[in-house]
Design a protein around this nucleic acid. Structure first.
Lengths: 103, 103
DNA sequence: TGTTCATATGAAATGCAAGTCATATAACCT
DNA sequence: AGGTTATATGACTTGCATTTCATATGAACA
């Protein structure tokens, strides 16, 4: 069962680890190990998160030998992030924007 | 401190109650009591949720006598919801769309 | 086939957001 | 001022997502 509900979809953006993964993949596809190293999280934690992200089609996967390469569903994700960035710029004081970017 | 981070923003969409409030206010502003009645939640629970929604400027408030009337920040919210609806339509099997709509 | 590397999975522990309950505040009216 | 209605707030509890840890799967290659 995939994309059970909208709140399940948004849950993938409402969490530090997942959001870091999304942000990271914004600049290109990566395998699991690299993602884990870059965001400093355990491999298994990353895998669990990646599962949920792919379940909702926020990420795509491709097998490459023994690696699995994850990539962003840019069609959906980029526009959403841009909307939120715009929202924050418009509605939130400078200090908050800074905080957001440091996550 | 408002909009501390992006995941805080998305948290407002990643929860049944908040999402119901957002959906409800899509068709116009309402006071707290009415919201609580319509979504069948306790008034205090609704108030707690409304606070977070306004903190992130997803909702606006106006005082009207002893009532407080909450309204949607349509500029941000409507486009985001439309993007997600499109995403679900495109990526998720029919059964899932149904599930999503029943939440 | 056995070994290594890469990743996934399941169950149990942890953490934290959300809900609950009681109470406070605040506006309006008599 | 006192009463009533509307909403907010704080502390406590609960529910559930997330992490952790141990282990399984699976691909490549000798």
């Amino acid at each position: 069962m995939k994309c059970k509900s909208y709140n399940l979809f948004f849950m993938n953006f409402a969490n530090k680890t997942k959001l870091e993964i999304i942000t990271l993949l914004r600049s290109g596809p990566l395998n699991v190990k690299t993602i884990a190293r870059k965001i400093k999280e355990e491999q298994s934690a990353v895998s669990h998160n990646l599962k949920k992200l792919t379940d909702c089609h926020i990420l795509d996967v491709k097998n490459l030998g023994k690696e699995r390469v994850y990539s962003l569903n840019r069609d959906t994700v980029i526009p959403i992030l841009k909307l939120v960035e715009k929202h924050v710029r418009k509605n939130c004081p400078k200090s908050c924007i800074k905080n957001a970017e440091n996550n």
